[in-house]
Design a protein around this nucleic acid. Sequence first.
DNA 1: AGAATTTAATGCGAAACGGTACAAATATGA
DNA 2: TCATATTTGTACCGTTTCGCATTAAATTCT
Lengths: 206, 206
Amino acid sequence: MKDEKRRGRPRAFDAKAALGKARDVFWDRGFAAASLDNLSAATNLNRPSLYGAFGDKEDLYLDTLEGYRQDGMNTLAEALDPSLPLRDNIARVYAGALAIYLHGETAARGCLLIGTASAEAVQHERVREVLGRSLNDFDDKIEKRMRLGVERGELPESADPQMLARLASAVMHSLAVRARAGDSREVLEAIARSGVELICGSANNP
Amino acid sequence: MKDEKRRGRPRAFDAKAALGKARDVFWDRGFAAASLDNLSAATNLNRPSLYGAFGDKEDLYLDTLEGYRQDGMNTLAEALDPSLPLRDNIARVYAGALAIYLHGETAARGCLLIGTASAEAVQHERVREVLGRSLNDFDDKIEKRMRLGVERGELPESADPQMLARLASAVMHSLAVRARAGDSREVLEAIARSGVELICGSANNP
DNA sequence: AGAATTTAATGCGAAACGGTACAAATATGA
DNA sequence: TCATATTTGTACCGTTTCGCATTAAATTCT
């Protein structure tokens, strides 16, 4: 399915790699301020190739968002390894997030979705939809782990898994915003630690 | 000082009102996607007047951010009325935030700073500075209230006011993002309630 | 080998962009 | 009244923007 020979001239570039380069541009500049020239230069593709492969600028942006979302879900799934204690799981979620957020040439980039899609969300319904779905999916995955925590006795029966999950996400959202606002790694790690403590405060220590 | 007659033709518009209209445009579209035509139409000022009164587009944007920041600090100060219990204070902070966030023609606008300044923060150092300062000032004001809570015995001696404040802010950051992502008022209010419970969970009930 | 199909590269074009020159209008100061 | 100072409105400038038309190149099918 991957090697079925297509007719015509073959592509001279790796679409996935190009998407990664485009993602970096959007991540730094946001959607509106990223020009096709910027994207063309970063991907080493001239505009017609870009257009032919991904559609217009909004299509390309939505593609990068979707890829980012899926990468994030995978990272989250790894962090939530159910063979580890709940406390470690949430700590790993934040550590994984910070590893992504604290990366940038001029300044930390934070989260692509929260940092750039939020700006477009009011006017672009499709962007708003992706953003909303991403946040909800994240909440849901964490909620599942919380529910497991209640079953296992890591959390008290009285705990509300959905709300705990949403608050655990809230700390991550804040890390994303603060990273982009220039907060230091030390401060962000301290917030993450305190967040784990607050969210999992009622969790049993083995 | 306000009525000292200036020479030359007087202004035919209220600069403060114009700034408010411009703020709405930036709030909906973000900085980069807001054109001078948009701003000119919304304020009923032609571009030269706009330029003469506020400088270029970035200056105008920074002015609106600064005004928003100060309005927010005033709203926060009111919410944190020290004659009320800590729990009520934090609940009022979230209620005040939601009243601002859940307002928009097509979709909820969230927070001007978190929703639009974040996008520009990586590339525009001055925007990043305003954003960072705004978040920190907010944290500091809440931290003061937390400190008072410890003194008063509303919070246990073991409580860390700085970290509690940062986590209280984190819930608000999340409300800002989620509002812009399209979450319903009901969901946001539920998160706010759970946030109050978690943050102030150790607070005494009078 | 030649037709068919797909991609690559150059370059164009219409529209939108931010910003400003300039002259008319409206006030104050002398 | 007349010079001075500031704002207003029109019109414009040069640049950048996005998207595409067109032609050359590279591959497969017949």
